[in-house]
Nucleic acid binder design. Sequence first.
DNA 1: CTAAGGACCTGTCGGC
DNA 2: TGCCGACAGGTCCTTA
Length: 270
Amino acid sequence: MPELPEVETTRRGIQPWVEGQQVESIVVRQPKLRWPIPEQLSLSLPGQRVQSVTRRAKYLLFQTDAGVMLVHLGMSGSLCIVPKETEATKHAHVDIGFSNGMMLRYTDPRRFGAVLWQADSNTHPLLDGLGPEPLDEGFSSEYFLSSCRMRKLPIKQLLMNNAVVVGIGNIYASEALFRAGIDPRRAANRIAEKRLEVLRQAVISVLSEAIEQGGTTLKDFIGGDGKPGYFQQQLKVYGRVGETCFRCGTSIRSIQLGQRSTYFCVGCQR
DNA sequence: CTAAGGACCTGTCGGC
DNA sequence: TGCCGACAGGTCCTTA
């Protein structure tokens, strides 16, 4: 479900309910996520005040005096705010109760997500080695150009590599490439500098617009505030196999690239 | 170092 | 209606 815009939408939805609140309780019903939920989380979190809710890549970071709780939504995870004592639903694996009478609930049917705890002030190992945020200055033209140099893998796979730049998942990779008019199969090192700059701008604009519109709702994504995302209506190629390109009328194609479905228009993308 | 493929899970949908 | 395979928004880890 979640790429960067969905995670950011979730962050903005829950932040006002969680920031500054004291944790009163934590219930872990299913600790078996991508990694086991550490016991230390349940021991350390109660009594702590959440100082801030921030995001790094697709991780949400809940800062407290005792440490940081990291939450990754994986493929099917979501966070929502519900009144305390709300009945547990099927895949509600974690509930965190706050002093304001509300509860932060982590739900994740496929359990590819993670809820972790980092006690000391070091950054968590999972955050090491991540590339720059696509909407920060670190994702500069110079940086992107040098990242593509010498790389012969398809540009779409490079875009989705978190060591290069974080947050771009399967939907927005296809969308950004369509916007830039670049064939997703094209080797990264065989794209002119000028076109790479167009692509960099496309990544930035697609993600920014998606965040503004509350993310893309496919299947069941709901923002932390309970509202659906509206970016789905803006999708130009993702999920549109066989439909006609809005720009040139060619039928949208779907191929497999690195085991992931990839959507593009042969008429518009070279 | 780069790149490719498997692994981890449940739910849903289309076809027969 | 029921069963079965294909597929789904992520990313770490192993292998070449």
